[in-house]
């Protein structure tokens, strides 16, 4: 069974069709990178998967269970992590509280267990020494690593990354990508929307090229980056290589 299956996903905002029949699937431990021009529905697609945005049609199956029909959507979201472009850390909480609040208050782990788990994860992202800092005291790269740690603390089946490095200063991008690369190597299942092409080429098991709410092409990074079938994919990627 596939970990995630998206079938004919549709979403419209008033007259604009943002997602038209999106279909793809993911295996456990797979890393898929979604690329494409801005405003083509990549972010909306991610948010439909954990129903932060309600899809208008189609099916999304997580371990065979239809997310779009789930009554208790909160239960489902516990199994799907999300990392945001703007970090969206809880500003009034310390780094440690940001990370442990999920397992502690949502999963109802004991405070000790949640703390222990959170500290381990913070160590993995290299921030155990900043556990008592507040988000405002962190650099962008550190904030995003906390964002990743917060998602990891729920021990999800899958993590969605919504342009995780787009709000960062160029010199801070590396540390965040490093953490993600590490996750991929440790078998985390990740669906990543990004504009970091060399990272995509590097880390992805598969690349999906999206435009105007449709999947134009879906394949291995070698195929998409070196020998794309569709002219549109070629044109899009040419913008990055010609710079």
């Amino acid at each position: 069974m596939k970990l995630l299956e998206v079938k004919n996903l549709k979403k419209r905002y008033k007259d604009k069709e943002v997602l038209k029949n999106i279909s793809f699937d993911m295996d456990k431990t797979e890393t898929i990178v979604v690329i494409g021009p801005s405003g083509t529905g990549k972010s909306t697609m991610l948010k439909c998967i954990n129903r932060l945005v309600e899809p208008d049609g189609g099916q999304i199956l997580l371990n065979g269970q239809d997310i779009t029909k789930a009554r208790r959507v909160e239960k489902l979201r516990q199994r799907i992590g999300m990392v945001f472009q703007e970090f969206n850390l809880f500003n009034h909480l310390t780094v440690l509280d940001n990370v442990r609040i999920g397992p502690w208050k949502v999963k109802k782990l004991s405070k000790e267990k949640a703390t222990k788990l959170a500290m381990e994860i913070l160590k993995n992202v290299g921030l155990d020494d900043r556990a008592n800092a507040y988000p405002a005291e962190l650099s962008g790269g550190q904030k995003q690593r906390v964002g990743i740690a917060r998602a990891l603390a729920m021990e999800p089946d899958l993590i969605l990354f919504d342009e995780p490095t787009s709000a960062l200063d160029p010199e801070l991008v590396g540390e965040v990508l490093e953490v993600m690369r590490n996750l991929a190597e440790h078998g985390m299942t990740m669906l990543i929307v990004t504009h970091e092409m060399s990272f995509a080429k590097d880390i992805a098991d598969r690349v999906i090229f999206m435009e105007n709410g449709e999947i134009v092409e879906d394949g291995t990074p070698e195929k998409i980056f070196n020998a794309p079938e569709k002219e549109r994919t070629h044109q899009f990627l040419a913008q990055f290589t010609n710079r």
Partner: peptide, 16 residues
């Protein structure tokens, strides 16, 4: 809004 979304994404209910 982003923090609210993040809270929902870790599985918090509206009340939580």
């Amino acid at each position: 809004e982003g923090q609210i979304m993040a809270a929902r994404s870790v599985g918090m209910t509206g009340i939580q």
